[in-house]
Amino acid sequence: MADTKIPLVDYLSLDGEPHLIAQECTSCGAKYFDRRNACAGCFATEFSPVEVGREGVLTSFTIVAFAAPGVKVPFVAGVVDCGGISVRGNVINTEPDPDHVKLGMPVRLATYSMGADDHGTEAIAFGFEPA
């Protein structure tokens, strides 16, 4: 069995302390989590990777109680402002109810295992937990 880890998405880096990586437009500073042919804001074509801060503020959320088959509910989906970069993620490690999840609450990046595949590779997911 191989003892390897793979991130849930390619913009989650597991090198050192886990963190997110955005592609920053070298011309206007706009940041993207996927590949772009040109910057959607200024049309420039050069990008360079930048590290996204691990701490942020929850600027919006919903508590999903009804989802596609196979998706565990309830869960908290939200948007976190990490120092000027908006990140999409779940709020984890707290009760998924409006008494525990509040607009404007400080949160930080956290990772957890999604289990191993048949080759022993472990997938690592991220979320945001109350800070």
């Binding site: 793979i6 989802a67 997938a123």
Partner: peptide
């Protein structure tokens, strides 16, 4: 590596 719906928002 998996459907992110419900995991990442």
């Amino acid at each position: 590596v998996a459907n992110p719906d419900g995991v990442i928002g």
